[in-house]
Design a protein around this nucleic acid. Sequence first.
DNA 1: CCTATTCATCGTAATATTGCAATATATAAT
DNA 2: ATTATATATTGCAATATTACGATGAATAGG
Lengths: 109, 109
Amino acid sequence: MGVTRSDLFTEKQNEFSKIAKVFGHPARLAILDYLLKSQTCICGDLVEELGLAQATISQHLKELKNAEIIKGNIEGTSVCYCINEEKWYELKLVFNELFDRYPSSNDCC
Amino acid sequence: MGVTRSDLFTEKQNEFSKIAKVFGHPARLAILDYLLKSQTCICGDLVEELGLAQATISQHLKELKNAEIIKGNIEGTSVCYCINEEKWYELKLVFNELFDRYPSSNDCC
DNA sequence: CCTATTCATCGTAATATTGCAATATATAAT
DNA sequence: ATTATATATTGCAATATTACGATGAATAGG
């Protein structure tokens, strides 16, 4: 009980849901917003910017990195994060693929 | 502890994450896949189709309905679900709006 | 070597999500 | 009215997520 039954669904459904879940937290969106906006790629400024504890930010960054949505680069004692452009374009395609499968117009709703 | 700090984020970030979260479960994607594919709008066939318990399907349908991604129509003893076309197009726009904010090319990653 | 800085990780508490059996509700058919 | 069918809701148990303090690891600068 309580465990997502991944075995019941397609690879695609499982993969897509995993990505969508990463976008499913406002802190991670805030991080992406910041990275999209900032010229330079920002590291720990996110901590003051967002108002969450450093450990929490680090955790969210990790999830974004696991999903390959962002990349991190060590620069001395700090880490420089930025959006993974290739993945970003890929995600755009993947989401469009979903939303372009328009619902068949029907008469019952 | 453990509560998402919605107060720290923008309305937009909170709203978007809420929608993304709905797409963040494979069962809900499977339901959408089925509704997108089926000519008629399907009701409880989802239960046999997906292999989850009826109560579980019902719960996922509720979340999709709360997010206004699908609509339900009572037809006798059964309920006919289908995708909310207007919302669907709106979601397409909202997601594109995000992905069209291309990352500024940078030199550190 | 010592210290400060930056970030990651660990441990843990609070809360949310998932899944299901059991039960409730509502309509249809007899 | 009674029964059958379809869906929703309730009440849990299992698991996942979120947040944070404390601690660890790595580097820069003295």
